[in-house]
Amino acid sequence: MSRLKIAVQKSGRLNQGSIQLLKDCGIVIDNGKDQLKAPARNFPLEILFLRNADIPQYLEDGVADAAIIGENVLIEKPNKAEVVQKLGFSRCRLSLAVPKNVDYAGAEYFEGKKIATSYPYTLQTFLDKKGIKAEIHVISGSVEIAPNIGLADGICDIVSSGSTLFKNGLKEVETLLKSEAVLAKSQKISAEADEILQKLLFRIRAVLEAQNTKYILMNVPNDKIEEVSALLPVLKSPTIMPLKQKGWSSLHTVIKEDTFWEVIDKLKAAGAEGILTIPIGKVVL
């Protein structure tokens, strides 16, 4: 039986989010401690636990059919893998940072300076676009310490909250790119594996849609139903159920998380009362 081979980060920022996403898709994974390969119990899928930096090559060689990986890693190691879905977790940015006491006026500061980074390709691309000549020192880890030990004048590294920069006496001054976890597929994926990937993608999109959606219930005077319904960005149309109290109905629908408060204010102004929200597990469109 054909299986989809999907690579995920062995350890680090993306590992937990990747495994949780697959579990949210109803996929049960039999993985023990220190396993580098684990099959799914109820879906034709096999997980390869790999070093983050190695995943792009596995995709390019076709050893992995697909991967959950940081978009920044694919950009740093360009290959022919195709991003098929952004996943919305492990958001971060690749930024330049300098010591806090530096009077920074712009990217020209880095002219003739030394920059420590684990992302030389992305950094060089940025510098070339700006017409800046700088010396790049490639470091595989603990980049933040470089300015403190005199190795570099600044760094280029992944930033999430910025707390690591702060602890090391650095400040963020330029954002080169924004990144998040993505689902990518190899150009060498077989037709059978691609068919399985599309089934997985269907589940992933249902999970992602639910994460940005709330189910809401509200009581509405019957003479306000049309006005309230017109305010609702629903999948098709709201469900309306009569209440015991004469002249009132219960209206049920879904609403996007990013417009929630704006819409709620309008609903209240239009006469809706007793508004309740319920989390949604999946949204199958």
Results as ranks from 00 to 15, higher is better:
T122F: 03
L45R: 02
K10M: 08
L285Y: 15
F260V: 03
K113N: 02
E262F: 09
F89H: 05
T253W: 00
G88R: 02
R91S: 09
G281D: 11
L127R: 00
M1Q: 12
L21Q: 02
G274W: 10
V283F: 09
G162Y: 06
K114E: 07
A38Q: 08
S18C: 08
N31S: 10
N148G: 10
F49M: 10
L208W: 05
R3W: 09
K113S: 01
S95L: 00
L96C: 07
T259E: 15
T125G: 06
D61C: 08
S160A: 15
A64M: 07
L50M: 14
N52A: 14
A116N: 04
D61K: 13
R41I: 15
G169E: 07
L21K: 04
A38T: 04
I275F: 06
E82F: 02
I225S: 05
G112V: 04
L123K: 00
S229T: 12
A40M: 11
I145G: 01
N42R: 09
P99S: 09
R93V: 03
I255G: 03
H137E: 11
I132S: 01
G88E: 04
I149V: 14
I275V: 15
E180C: 04
L183A: 00
G247Y: 09
S95W: 00
K5T: 13
A7N: 07
A210H: 03
G162L: 04
C25A: 12
K100R: 14
S161L: 08
L176H: 00
D194H: 09
L276N: 09
F126K: 02
E273A: 10
L87Q: 03
T277L: 12
Q9A: 06
V263Q: 05
Y121H: 13
L127Q: 02
K129P: 01
K114C: 03
I155E: 03
C92L: 13
G12C: 07
N148C: 08
P147Y: 02
L14V: 10
A134N: 05
E209R: 11
P233I: 09
G12N: 12
G162M: 07
F166N: 12
R13L: 12
K23H: 13
